[in-house]
Simulated scan of single mutants.
Amino acid sequence: MTSDITLFVNPAAGRGRGARSAQPAARVLRDAGFSVRTVLGENASDALRRARAAVAAGTGALIAVGGDGVVSLALQATAGTPTPLGVVAVGTGNDFARALGLPVRDPAGAARAAAEALKGDGGRPVDLGRVGETWFGTVLASGFDSRVNDRGNRLRFPTGRLRYDVALVAELAALRPVPYRITLDDGPALSVEATLVAVGNGTSYGGGMRICGGARMDDGLFDITVVGPCSRSTLLRVFPKVYRGTHLDHPKVTVHRAARVRLETPAGTDGGTGYADGEPLGPLPLTAETVPGAVRILGAA
């Protein structure tokens, strides 16, 4: 193992926590005997290009400093390679880190866990989802929650998380089920009406919403949560349960397990954009497959 490792930093994550967290993380890694190089990017595509270049050059590890957005970019660079990934989770949601029992908003602790893993077992192999050439670690979302994302991304005011609260209220007013065709592995297509369909490699999205609360990242399977047609009042009653994962017991909720899933909506139906790890993938149809042990994560429980 080379002692040269790369910090992959999103300085804007968590309202500036990314920039503030890089220094204590780097200090811990250097104190552990590693040579640390920091990579930033002018934008997401430039950052990804630089991260891939570091991996191709043989860095001993890529350590992502930021939130789920920078982790998503880091997965594109490390998945399917022998380069392990460390996560210094200091963003707003940190769902990937939480699912793996990694320290959250503790840059020194996260860096220490990564250093110990590099000197020890080299990290834990975990599964990832893949849609085409795009990898994801947590959840692929479609339906109501993806339409909230779409609307929120179009709004110029208000800013921050309030923008998505406004988008949520607007989408509730227009709530409607979507006709889906869901194909699990090589089985027959299921025709269902659904408020949303979430494909979980990990358990949560949106900063702790355990939409796929039973998902595991080492079993080679997705948990696919289907929320059937429901009224606005039902959705509002069930929504708070998502943070505990107890929504899975509701009669409107069905969970399937499969290694590959295809989501389709009929021609002329607005199924919205699919989002994975909070990043847009594009409109349905989409096919996702699990890739067992696609990346090694440093310090994962």
Rank of each mutant, 00 (worst) to 15 (best):
L75E: 05
A26T: 04
P283M: 04
L221H: 11
A294C: 12
G14A: 07
R176Q: 15
L62T: 13
V28K: 12
V65A: 10
L102D: 05
V227N: 01
I5C: 01
L102I: 09
D31P: 01
P188N: 10
E289F: 00
A32Q: 11
A22I: 09
G200C: 05
R216E: 14
L190P: 05
Y243C: 04
S191V: 12
R156H: 15
P103Q: 08
Y180P: 11
G214L: 09
S231C: 04
A110P: 06
L73D: 08
A115N: 09
G129K: 03
H250R: 14
A111L: 07
R112Y: 00
R237C: 05
G272Y: 12
G293L: 10
G143F: 06
D219Y: 00
P158I: 03
D150Q: 14
P179V: 12
L235Y: 12
A301I: 12
R237I: 01
N94V: 12
T78E: 00
L73P: 05
Q23T: 13
M1S: 13
V295P: 10
V242P: 10
S45T: 14
V126N: 05
P107L: 02
R232Y: 03
L140P: 08
V238S: 08
L263V: 05
R296E: 02
T265Y: 04
P158S: 08
D277E: 06
V238D: 14
G60W: 01
D127N: 03
A53P: 11
P188D: 15
K252E: 15
T159G: 13
P280C: 13
A215D: 01
P280A: 11
T287I: 12
L102G: 07
A276W: 05
V178A: 06
E279A: 06
L172I: 05
D270E: 14
A189L: 07
E116H: 11
A56N: 10
D145S: 08
D185Y: 02
L118N: 09
H250N: 13
V255E: 00
E171Y: 03
F222E: 02
T78D: 12
P107E: 03
T38F: 03
E264W: 00
K241E: 14
G137H: 08
E42D: 14
G214C: 02
A77I: 12
P229M: 09
I182D: 03
I211K: 03
A54I: 06
E171D: 09
V291R: 15
T246N: 11
D121W: 00
A267W: 13
A99S: 15
K119V: 05
E171F: 03
D218C: 00
L155H: 06
A115G: 09
H247A: 09
E171H: 04
L248F: 03
V36H: 00
N201K: 08
R15M: 07
T38Y: 02
T6R: 02
R176V: 04
L196S: 14
T195V: 06
N149M: 15
V295Q: 11
R163T: 10
A97M: 08
K241L: 14
T159L: 15
G122E: 12
N94A: 13
A198Q: 06
A301V: 15
A32I: 07
G187W: 02
R20F: 02
A25C: 07
V199L: 08
T138R: 07
R154V: 04
F8E: 09
V242R: 03
G152K: 07
P177D: 13
G18N: 06
A198C: 14
G93C: 13
P292S: 14
V291P: 12
A108M: 01
L162K: 10
V178S: 11
